[in-house]
């Protein structure tokens, strides 16, 4: 797909926030906060960074994306709808019986969903396996995953991080949505995962810490990761859960609930939806 400019990406991210909230509000269940904290990263991946072709979803050399933080599925679906993988009307089926837009992603390459996820911490190893397959086949595709701070409490994520560092998987990039909130409250109050950068460095990753809502910084970090040889890259993105809508921002309550009608109206006004 054509690489968009930073300004275009920022506009797109706003448009996708609106799409996410319309989906979650219509479903009246699911996660509001996470999709809004990670959507800037996903926008940069799908509309700037990754080589992919919605007309040819099974293209062997496409870059892969694995949503380790599967509960932020509406953000992935919004990107795939906008990119043209998923017909737009399908958005109203989110979390409904018979819909392919399951509450957490289910593998469906036709629709650009590269893996079933939802149980935290598993996407790291899965993405490594994909990166190993690329290397084995002498292909140039790269593999991206979106990790989360809650997911970093899972032991399996670190098993995978150790493997990627040990195997020098430089076709592998993990973005980590560090919004500091998990279901039961603030991460620092439940089981703090800091310092994440030092942990990844210790596991032999090239590690960057950026503002996960600064589109220029995200794009620059992805550019830098492409130049790194012999190491996977971890981009730790400091974010705000619920970013873009003042009433949701940084409030643990909105981790796993849908907006009410009144909240939805406020959100649409703030995001400028007509």
């Amino acid at each position: 797909m054509k690489k968009r400019s930073v300004a275009e990406l920022e506009d797109l991210a706003c448009e996708l926030r609106i799409l996410i909230l319309k989906m979650v509000h219509h479903a009246q269940c699911g996660h509001t906060g996470g999709p809004l904290s990670c959507i800037d990263m996903l926008t940069a991946l799908y509309f700037y960074e990754m080589n992919h072709d919605p007309e040819n979803p099974h293209w062997e050399n496409r870059d892969r994306f694995v949503l380790s933080a599967g509960h932020t599925a509406p953000a992935l679906y919004a990107c795939l709808i906008k990119a043209g993988y998923i017909p737009k009307d399908e958005m109203w089926g989110l979390r409904k019986l018979g819909s392919k837009l399951q509450g957490h992603p289910k593998l469906n390459v036709d629709w650009g969903i590269e893996m079933s996820t939802g149980s935290l911490g598993q996407g790291m190893s899965i993405s490594n396996g994909m990166a190993m397959a690329a290397r084995l086949d002498g292909k140039s595709y790269r593999v991206y995953s979106l990790e989360s701070d809650g997911g970093a409490q899972e032991g399996m994520m670190w098993e995978g991080a150790m493997s990627a560092g040990y195997r020098h998987l430089d076709n592998r990039v993990a973005l980590l949505d560090y919004n500091g909130i998990q279901i039961d409250g603030f991460v620092k109050d439940i089981k703090d995962v800091a310092p994440l950068d030092k942990k990844f460095e210790a596991f032999n990753w090239h590690t960057l810490v950026i503002d996960g809502h600064d589109m220029s910084a995200i794009v620059a970090a992805l550019d830098e990761a492409r130049l790194v040889k012999g190491k996977p890259t971890a981009i730790i993105c400091k974010t705000i859960m619920g970013k873009g809508v003042s009433i949701f921002e940084n409030k643990p309550k909105y981790h796993g609930v849908a907006p009410t009608d009144d909240e939805f109206k406020i959100a649409m006004q703030e995001l400028g939806d007509q």
Partner: peptide, 11 residues
Amino acid sequence: GTAAGLAACGK
């Protein structure tokens, strides 16, 4: 997990 990723890429 790694096995899953390899299989998803055709192995």
